[in-house]
Design a protein around this nucleic acid. Sequence first.
DNA 1: CAAACGATTTTCT
DNA 2: GAAAATCGTTTGG
Length: 191
Amino acid sequence: MKLTDEFYRQKDVVKVARALLGKKLCTLIGGVFTSGIITETEAYNGIHDRACHAFGGKLTKRTATMYEPGGVAYVYLCYGMHHLFNVVTGTEGVPTAVLIRAVMPADGVDAMLQRRNKTQPDKTLTLGPGSMSRALGISTALNGESLSGKKIWVEDAGLRLPAIEIVSSARIGVEYAAEDALLPYRFVWQA
DNA sequence: CAAACGATTTTCT
DNA sequence: GAAAATCGTTTGG
């Protein structure tokens, strides 16, 4: 069951970030299918969030994707070498998105190992936004791509997570965002 | 046109 | 714990 635009276009990006835990992120890149169960996310809450690229209504070539209607991919290059993947949420003109920071490997583990230059699965295979993207073959070529298409999408795998297994905390790597850096916008599923 | 800067990861000391 | 790797985007002159 692929998630619908209605799911992505909910008003509260924080709720979407929490709801994405336990969902299955799938990619079909160059004929290779890989997927993983989402275990860590972060919400970026539009123009009033100092940690968000679109803080203050900043609209540039890079951030434009965040202003699109929910249900597309926002992928950007960080530190010159990492492709970070976000799910754009909300309605058109509202720059909210959810960063996917980690998944649990599901399908296509061999392909992930190859992309990550590993021979054995380990804890770091799909842990961390840069590593997760690389394992699933996600790159900036997917920026703006519809999540209802055939290259990348999210499915409801039918998992129901007990609330007690979901932990929230401050976001990672956004110390520059002053008081907004303290907001509990990061969600981790620890089974 | 030049320069600084990351929503990070890996490796070395 | 510190530092390097590495480049498109953004900003300032």
